[in-house]
Every structure is written in structure tokens, then in C-alpha cells.
Amino acid sequence: MSAAHEFEVSRRGVLVVGASAAAAAAAAPAAAQGQGAEPPVIAKVSLEVNGKRRALELDTRTTLLDALREHLHLTGSKKGCDHGQCGACTVIVDGRRINACLTLAVMHEGAKVTTIEGLGQPGALHPMQAAFVKHDGFQCGYCTPGQICSAVAVLNEIKAGVPSHVSGDITAAPQVSVDELRERMSGNICRCGAYSNIVEAITEVAGRTA
């Protein structure tokens, strides 16, 4: 969540910060191997990722996102802000969408994790993936895996009766509407601004599965 949004940051500043963050990320595995003053603590965890049992030995500091990307090489889930502000890392854990960057892998012993790779593959797309393609629900594509995982979970949340900030009567069953989708998807940022097409894609899938 935004800690410093009241500071103005120039576009150049963002690029410089982004580059240094990328360099730091690249250097992280080396640092995690014990070059720092404090040695890493290694722990075992076993997860079910996209239907497959995966046993890992990880530095306890490893987030679920880094476990998926760096250890299981499932690079569909993206690291955007790494602080839960952008939603690019959204995956579905035990049926719920979460920010994979803000949870530790070791906290998910036995959990069932679904990433974008588990939803569908080329030639056998999930209906939400197909709808994003059909409606141009992306431009650069970086936020898209998170958007799609989030969108699939949003429709389940509406079906389960989870209210939102824009629900008129919170005691009634929520309905799919443009306002509801925009509110419920607000944890997924798209810097290309594909929001209106994303809403169209989700709306189409909601109609199909309603």
C-alpha cells in the first residue's frame, strides 16, 4: 500500500529506482547464500503448485512469489512493486487471491497454489485468458497474469456473497456490474491503462458463467 504517494516522483526517477531495484533483485540470491553478517536460515516447505506436489528448501525470507519465480521457474507471476501495491504477483492460494509478494513460502505448507500457468496454456486457455485476448485487456502484458488471476477470483467472491465498497445493500447478494468490477479489481494496477477492456473481458466471462 502506498506509503509515499504524496511525494512527487519524476518518470526518470521511477526508471532509475526501477533499475536499481532490478539490480538488487538480481544480487539477492547471492546475498541470501550467506555473504551478509547473519547466515540465512533454511527451512523445508511442500506446496501443491498447479496440481503438482513441489518440495522446496528455502531461505525463510523467500516470499511465495520468489519461490514460484526463482525456484519453480513459474515466471508468469510478476514482481512489480514487491510491496502489495500493484497486484502483478496475484496468485490463487486455497481458492483465494492473494499478493504472493507479501507472504512467506514457508507459511504455506500443504497449500494449493494456482498461478497463471495453472489456469490455462496456449491452445487450452482459461475462459478469462481467452476473454482478455478477445477484448485487448492488456497492452504491455506485465500486469496481465495478476489481472487474470484476480479476475477469476473476483467472480468467485461475488458468487460467494462477499460485499464490496460499492455494494448498495450489503445484506443483499452482490451483482456483477461495471462499478463492482472496477472496485474489486482496484488492487491490480495497469500502467498501460487497459482498464476498460479488462472490465469488458471480465463482464463477458461473468455472463458466460453466471
Binding site: I98, L102, T103, P163, S167, I170
Partner: peptide
């Protein structure tokens, strides 16, 4: 306790509220 439900859904994002 509608005020509580309303306050909760006005905070954070769906992903964060799930955790």
C-alpha cells in the same frame, strides 16, 4: 454491525483483505 462490514471493504484491496 453494518458499520464494521462497510469499514472493512473500504480498506486495502481484495487480495490484502483475503490475508
Amino acid at each position: 454491525y453494518g458499520v464494521l462490514s462497510r469499514a472493512l471493504v473500504s480498506g486495502a484491496s481484495g487480495q490484502l483483505r483475503n490475508k
